[in-house]
């Protein structure tokens, strides 16, 4: 029995008549990188919304480190150690880059400023410390958003298509960071379309289609099974990988 840091059970979310999530289960091993793939509209973002507390209209259960967080407010979930990014990047446009990071620090963290400076240096954005969020390129905004997530030193990070719209150089920086942090023990759940990235980073992959987990499997099986590519592109294949 592996040590699961995040356990999702039977999460259902209905919008009007549409069932966006039809009872999703997820088991995320501590220290792992878990990938989520699936066609557009399959409910990936909605799942993140529910887990992070942004969407509080779902039923089921989300346990973070043995504690029920479903229905908790997002700031509380964040303080429990689960952070996330948005599919569409959202920095605070009228705050400087440095301020963008500092606001996300834990409440009594005295080292917030130095931590922010250190992170910016790590991704070579130190020249932009005092630049307003709105003056960054899109790729830089995504990176800042990613760094912002790191400010509280979370144990689980959810990334929603973090590389979309980012140029290859910054993208590489991003994946390097993920790898580096994962090496230090941070758990990641990543929504991503690029199968090379998935097979390179993820120990386990979930395939979502029309609000259901239709397949889950190991990195190896994903890499070798061409089915996943098809699913990732068009969905609707009810096929199960060997675990």
């Amino acid at each position: 029995m592996a040590d699961h840091i995040l356990v999702v059970r039977g999460v259902r979310r209905v919008f009007g008549g549409v069932e966006a999530l039809k009872g999703v289960d997820l088991d995320v091993v501590r220290g792992s990188v878990t990938g989520i793939i699936g066609p557009n509209g399959s409910g990936k973002t909605t799942l993140f919304q529910v887990i992070s507390g942004m969407d509080r209209g779902a039923t089921g259960s989300v346990m973070l480190d043995g504690r029920e967080i479903l229905g908790c407010r997002p700031y509380f979930v964040y303080q429990c150690g689960l952070a996330r990014t948005f599919q569409l990047s959202r920095v605070f446009p009228q705050l400087t880059v440095l301020e963008n990071l500092i606001v996300a620090a834990r409440r009594h963290d005295r080292g917030a400023r130095s931590r922010a400076l250190e992170l910016l240096e790590r991704v070579k954005l130190e020249a932009y410390n005092e630049v307003l969020g709105s003056d960054l390129s899109y790729g830089q905004q995504r990176l800042v958003e990613f760094l912002r997530v790191l400010m509280s030193d979370p144990s689980v990070i959810l990334l929603d298509e973090p590389a979309a719209g980012v140029n290859p150089t910054l993208r590489a920086t991003l994946w390097d960071m993920v790898r580096h942090l994962n090496g230090l023990g941070t758990t990641f759940v990543i929504i991503e379309h690029n199968m090379d990235v998935i097979s390179d980073l993820c120990q386990e992959v979930y395939v979502l289609s029309e609000g259901e987990v239709i397949a889950r499997g190991s990195r190896r099986s994903v890499a070798t099974n061409s089915c996943s590519r098809r699913i990732s592109g068009s969905g609707a294949a009810h096929e199960r990988f060997a675990a």
């Binding site: 992070s52 507390g53 942004m54 407010r73 997002p74 700031y75 509380f76 964040y78 303080q79 952070a83 996330r84 948005f86 959202r90 920095v91 605070f92 446009p93 009228q94 705050l95 301020e99 500092i102 606001v103 996300a104 620090a105 834990r106 409440r107 917030a112 912002r148 400010m151 509280s152």
Partner: peptide, 25 residues
């Protein structure tokens, strides 16, 4: 101040602020 920055963050994007651990309410 940190709190002041949080106020400004909420003014700009309340949803984003809340996932930055800011108790928006």
């Amino acid at each position: 101040t940190r709190l002041g920055k949080a106020v400004r963050a909420v003014a700009e994007h309340p949803h984003v602020a809340t996932i930055c651990g800011i108790d928006v309410q």
